[in-house]
């Protein structure tokens, strides 16, 4: 589904991503792990169009996407979250979700002025969907709260929900478990599993919590110093000496 070939990106002298290649297969939960500074977030930023690669290719469903501006990527049904949550602070939770769906009619000035009935119609559907997502994530009682007032864990859920609103087929999650309590973490795992099995979504996620990765992800890709170090099932990775070395050495 997603193919990365010989990807390269440098910042000044630092080779953050240094000839990295891998694939993410349909309907998997693929994990991306590696020591801090390995270049994982940079890979996500390259895939989502925030950075232009210095070399290599990125293909999504056989089409090159590495020269697209960032706002085009979600329209291919490829969504992402951020390592540090970015909620729309001075907007309510429900508005945070309702802004997300792609290609809303009411996003055109003309329609907002002159085609109100159809805009309203669509808006009603979007609201229903947003309430469904809140319901699924069990945070519907927060819908009128300012997103800025949410706790860290709730913000993670909100960002996850916002991504769902764009109807993605592949979701990139950057450390979804960072800074949230184990109970919430379990819940989030459940959501990911459910969406994969019932909605055929594919997940590609960066995670530091090894227990979690080993449980949830298959296959797992290991990065170190901008390169792919290893790839395989949880068992294979755990037994891989290069991986142990990278973690202990770094």
């Amino acid at each position: 589904m997603l193919t990365v070939q010989n990807l390269e990106k440098s910042f000044g002298g630092i080779r953050a991503v240094d000839g990295c290649s891998f694939e993410v297969e349909d309907e998997t939960i693929t994990g991306l792990i590696g020591p801090n500074g390995a270049g994982k977030t940079t890979v996500f930023n390259l895939i989502s169009g925030f950075y232009q690669p210095d070399g290599g290719k990125i293909l999504f469903r056989e089409n090159r996407i590495d020269d697209l501006p960032p706002y085009r990527i979600p329209h291919l049904r490829l969504a992402r979250t951020f390592q540090i949550t970015r909620e729309l602070q001075k907007m309510t939770v429900i508005d945070n979700l309702m802004v997300a769906p792609l290609d809303q009619m009411g996003e055109s000035l003309w329609n907002s002025w002159f085609r109100i009935p159809s805009v309203k119609n669509q808006e009603r559907k979007i609201k229903e969907k947003a309430l469904d997502v809140l319901d699924f994530l069990e945070i519907e009682d927060l819908k009128d709260e300012y997103a800025g007032n949410l706790s860290g864990g709730q913000k993670k859920l909100l960002e996850f929900g916002r991504t769902m609103m764009t109807d993605p087929e592949l979701i990139l999650l950057d450390e979804p478990g960072a800074g949230i309590n184990p109970t919430l973490m379990k819940k989030l795992n459940g959501y990911i599993e459910t969406l994969r099995s019932e909605e055929s979504m594919t997940f590609f996620l960066i995670e530091h919590d090894m227990d979690l990765v080993m449980q949830l992800c298959d296959p797992i890709i290991v990065m170190s110093e901008g390169k792919k170090l290893a790839e395989g099932s949880a068992r294979e990775i755990q037994e891989n000496e290069k991986v142990l070395e990278a973690y202990l050495g770094g």
């Binding site: 960032p70 706002y71 085009r72 951020f82 001075k90």
Partner: peptide, 18 residues
């Protein structure tokens, strides 16, 4: 609503395809 999103965080607007 898109305008407010841009005001709050341009990168969010971008990942939402705006």
């Amino acid at each position: 609503r898109v305008l407010r999103t841009i005001r709050e965080d341009e990168r969010v607007a971008l990942v939402l395809g705006k």
